[in-house]
Design a protein around this nucleic acid. Structure first.
Lengths: 221, 221, 221, 221
DNA sequence: AATGAATGAGGATTCATTCAT
DNA sequence: TATGAATGAATCCTCATTCAT
């Protein structure tokens, strides 16, 4: 394995480890299967090498989530900053938020076990810094959202993102958290219960924005 | 420990194990702490005895979730069957759904790791039976809901329950999945981000119902 | 493996584990080689079984030392309690103390790494209780010694035992702490330097007692 | 870091590494904390560089002990060579031997784990050369001692040094081998058992010399 | 000569499950 | 039916040493 010498190369290697970790996790999305041994193999590195870049297994995990969160917010921000000239309705905003669904599924997988992970072996400061970073971004993006949708009251933008986040987690867990559940859902008797993650999330988001708007109107009248 | 001889006594013992399991889990709601050893101690039984009533640890867990689901639906059904004479608005239905919040938190704790658990060591048939049972109840209760709220389209009742369920899971995980996260959220910088589980869930539900109604009206006009 | 059911059987099994541990340690007297894996194999038990009897590896070690200390003091006490009718001189006391040399070598091996062991993974209370127990016995035996040798001043009995103990440790480390050192000492150039553990210890003890007596006489005159 | 080119510069660098090693070890006198990584950091060098000067970690350790031994003998020799004109009694010799107590403690720390270290990973030739060197010095200094104290029989000088050495090791291990033991010894119940390293060593040495003299006199009469 | 990134063997400990009593 | 002693697979992390630059 080529040695990462410059700090640029090291950043790249760190990224490569995270990419491998993500791929490994997606292949078997359970924290139990997320072993350092498997991770090292996936990254094509020695086990000890991982510990040059991350102090604990949990730190790898947290870095992974952090990166995905960043990408998610980046994409939403970009969508909200676009200006095709037309008016911003709830539907248009929902479309922007839904555009980044591919991050959603990944995040949902990761988030479903975030709590369990953070509980163990993560220095308090690390966990705090992580949470603060995410929240700062949520507020910034939330304000962007409020500027686009005037019927949102102050703070509702960030709140909407938090709810979206909650729904992503929840729906994901009902959708296909595991191969077993996937197999189960193929049972004909459960046809009506099948949850199409993307469709459901979109519908929910649309309904939520419609509800917020309606409440704003109710209040105004 | 008294021997359970009749099949009635055995059912009771099974129930007692589940009660103890729930109490133990609530005391320390992490799957890692949910060990068969702790469970046996909580139930005042020998470890081997548990295996007379459940084949695996995961089966205990699934039975636990199943029982809580049942209690939850029972309570919602009772609320929807009540008739104080007044009209059924979205707000009134939301109030009924929120009334069983105490089940929500318990369920949310359990559900947040359901996926991980079911993934491992649960016979397919067991998982399937569980899912079918839950879905059957969701449909029955969903229809009750549709009868009360005429603006709901067919199927939207069950869907609403699924969504509620998803939000419970998601919000819970953002709320207080762990002692560490609770400590983190006490940070002043995160004040605005604090999620009040009950309040948020209520607001979300209200907004969702309002949105559904608004969409029904939009369509009608 | 037969199950240890009664508390008598359990005490026996605990003892058997310690015996196996001692044998394994004597075969390769380094703490590094003292692995739980090796210990389990030596005892003919599963690794997990060891943890039913001892909470940590260090606890096994401490129990081992404790047992040897006990045996050592028992033997000295017995020797001092004997009464062949003759007078008690320094030489006679030295002979009694030397009689238990076979415990000395074992203890010396163990004691040479006691400090390192206690440093890690031993609850403070456990270490404290251990030390207190040893000291209590040292004082009791020290007083016996003072009764036999009138030229000893109060407290010198226990002190003598501590010094004996120190010399055992030190001489042992110079004697044959390892196979490598043993091989080295066979070098003809080092013939004069060879330390015969038992002989040296005896000589030293004799000289020390003679010195104490001489000082007592100096003082008296 | 400046390159060491001449062989003089290389010897100096070797010495600098040993100085750093000693400082690091004294700061945390446990072999576990004595890692090559810590050593490299202490010496301000890269880890790989250490291997240019020493083949293994154990070789560093052995070189360290060797240097301290040398300094110890140097100091004793100097003390014995002094001549203030007065007569040489056992007490005066003891005072000279005790003068170098500051080496004792350092040596004791190192020696307490010497056996364990040498056992592993030291080429036989290296260990042999080390032992021979130490013994040669012990004999030379022993003879100096015999010249000063006529009551010593031939060979007893070196023997006395070996015993002193043994007592240093043993007393040290009873004195303060670890932070935990230090804490334990603060327990009031153990007050009487507390070992004052310097005082005890002095007393023991005095008693030993007195005993040797007394035996010589016994024999003469 | 100097570096430090990469390696991987090695070990303590936990816990679901079995099975003899 | 009830028990709990016995089991051993499974996993995180450390650290001496190597070697490409």
């Amino acid at each position: 394995m080529q040695r990462a010498r410059s700090s640029e190369e090291k950043r790249e290697r760190r990224g490569a480890i995270l990419d491998a970790a993500l791929a490994a996790y997606e292949a078997d999305p359970s924290f139990a299967a997320f072993t350092m041994d498997a991770l090292a193999r996936a990254a094509g590195l020695g086990k000890g090498t991982l510990y040059l870049y991350f102090r604990t297994k949990e730190e790898v995990f947290l870095a992974l989530v952090d990166a995905r969160f960043g990408a998610w917010f980046d994409e939403i921000d970009a969508g909200l900053d676009e200006d095709g000239g037309g008016a911003w309705t709830g539907g248009r905003a929902a479309a922007v938020l839904m555009r980044s669904t591919r991050w959603h599924t990944t995040l949902a997988r990761l988030l479903s076990i975030l709590g369990t992970v953070v509980e163990h072996n993560v220095p308090f400061e690390t966990a705090l810094a992580f949470k603060r970073g995410v929240m700062a971004r949520a507020h910034a993006t939330g304000e962007r959202l409020e500027r686009r949708l005037p019927f949102l009251r102050p703070g509702q933008g960030a709140r909407l993102l938090v709810w979206l986040h909650a729904m992503v987690i929840g729906l994901w867990q009902l959708h296909e958290p595991s191969a077993t559940i996937r197999r189960i859902m193929q049972d004909p008797a459960l046809e009506g219960a099948r949850v199409d993650f993307g469709r459901d999330l979109g519908t929910l988001l649309r309904i939520m924005l419609r509800g917020m708007q309606a409440e704003a109107e109710d209040e105004a009248s």
